[in-house]
Design a protein around this nucleic acid. Sequence first.
DNA 1: GTGAAAGCGCTAACAA
DNA 2: TTGTTAGCGCTTTCAC
Lengths: 374, 374
Amino acid sequence: MINALTKSPQALLYSKFEIALADTDMNLKEFSAHLGLSPTTVSRALNGYPEVSEATRKRVAEAAEKLGYLPNSRAKRLATGRAMAIGHILPLSKEHEMVNPVFSDFIAGAGERYSESGYDLSLSVVRDEDEADSYRTLASRGNVDGVVIHGPKVDDARIAFLQDLGLPYVVHGRASDVTADYNWVDVNNRRAFFRATNFLLDLGHQRIGLLNGQLDMDFANRRQGGYRDALKARGLGFDDALVASGEMTETYGFATTKAMLSGSNPPTALLVASIIPAIGARRAIHDLGLVMGQDVSVVIHDDDLSYFRNDGDVPIFTATRSSVRDAGRHCAEILIRAIADPARQVQNILLEAELTVGQSTGPAPSLREILNHG
Amino acid sequence: MINALTKSPQALLYSKFEIALADTDMNLKEFSAHLGLSPTTVSRALNGYPEVSEATRKRVAEAAEKLGYLPNSRAKRLATGRAMAIGHILPLSKEHEMVNPVFSDFIAGAGERYSESGYDLSLSVVRDEDEADSYRTLASRGNVDGVVIHGPKVDDARIAFLQDLGLPYVVHGRASDVTADYNWVDVNNRRAFFRATNFLLDLGHQRIGLLNGQLDMDFANRRQGGYRDALKARGLGFDDALVASGEMTETYGFATTKAMLSGSNPPTALLVASIIPAIGARRAIHDLGLVMGQDVSVVIHDDDLSYFRNDGDVPIFTATRSSVRDAGRHCAEILIRAIADPARQVQNILLEAELTVGQSTGPAPSLREILNHG
DNA sequence: GTGAAAGCGCTAACAA
DNA sequence: TTGTTAGCGCTTTCAC
């Protein structure tokens, strides 16, 4: 097990890393000479080509393992013409420097899938205004074989752009105003908010405030649609004073909640689109001397509460709990297939959100009951 | 400005992307032939070699711009033997699937620096137990020129391992038990918690609860040291019942706070190591019928509150506010230099934390005053 | 100041 | 089933 070839005594202390280091880096030519085979045969054996005899393949695999031979990926990439990397572009605007935490989870899901297929995940952080250039450069220099589009706007320009570029892509989310067919993976935001609104309507609320994200973002737009549809289905109108949209920060939640509840005809319930502004909302309610879950009912939606894991003992409502990580995995899968077969039909995945606490159908439970996990 | 070479009519609609697409991908041979120069000269011109005449350099640069010639990075990487990529490994353990949101900000900072120097950021998500293998593979296949170590443990094994591997690296944080010299960028966690504790001591508190992270993590260990030192300096002992450590979730903050405040000799103040458990702590205080900032003083530490931006109108205390993004930038800088000059002396950067609300020195303000931003 | 030629380490036609 | 040969698109000696 332990092989102290080039290891320092210190490194030997750590069980987790007690594996022999490769002697010295070796290339295919040397490795194949060592085996008395041609580089071609060895390459074929290692890459699973069918024309290699099983005996040879086994011998090669064992020797590679034993000698620690790993093909140089730079050479492989040049020879095959494939980058073996997927690009994720993280645009950073000057106004909101904030990075969406959900991004981490998505990346984690996609990353797992990539490594199964030997793809690298190439992350570029670029200013908003340089985004187009980045895609072009990525494609032109052959740095990536495909990209994932994050945070699509309602009329996102990147889709047409990448289509023209001929670079395979998947959209995490959708762009409602783009009519073309393209690969996407999205959560059913409309339905999630429809149900969350219904949940509050079932409790008897008539005036429900909505704390939404920025409306140029497609997901926020769809969420508002779900909210509006639920009200409409009960014959209730859409009151502008009860609908806010903005960047989802704690400050936003605080200010908006305070303003709504201090208004002339305040809402009796709030539907908050993310846990972050909900923190601010909770504070605002408290500051006004009101009690959450009594004076004001609150339903929180969040795409992924894993970080805020509450194990059911914290009475915040989760209108939906869809796994962002799953979305990442799906995007990766679709993209890997699209790269392998560019003529492939586009694929769309619509993930349904879960209602984790309470039910939006059946007899309406009292808010107190739900707060006590009834 | 607008050049519709190969663009679809649809793409033309979007002003942000109204730049001509490169005709078709062109290689150095074609490009240099087009210029009536040898590939060698063109390569030299583009890479800033001194022996090229200014006239030629200018002509080449302009033609490259005009024709949209970009060198193929796969070929470049093979020829130079450099990956032009930095690896970040994101270990994912089975128990806590959670991805640290701070990671996003760090990555953003580092990424900006990387792109200035043409480096890619290669992000690998691997299971905890495969981490060593990942480093080895990354190095051996030549996928990256260096790596950043995240979340070091007190006696982190990766440092010795990478040292043996000969792969340049920087540690984001430190490993207290590792005596060797190595590149690191860290925040002065000890001092931050020393000051935060003093802040509460100055307000007259004698029993201060600490909600800390997992103690095998180096940063948590140092934080506890700062807390302990502050108490010691006032002749106060360390009460085990007042010190908790665990994964920083909302649940943890809720349960720990409830337990501490329900104890026989409860604390009058809490020092919470992150905003996430602080959300749970706030709830627990409220559940017990206590008022935060009156019955219990709370100081929150957080490495980066940018996401929870409170603009000073939300009375949570920020004991420190160091920019994780800056740390990322520094790490990138050090690593890029280390790659360029492997014989370079190690570099260490210790960032000081800021106290953004209140002061830990001078006359102690009343808690009410501070809550009202006095 | 410029060019010709030989790699970088692999893959993939084409032969055998 | 295995080997020979010619690239992939750059960089980089070495010669002019």
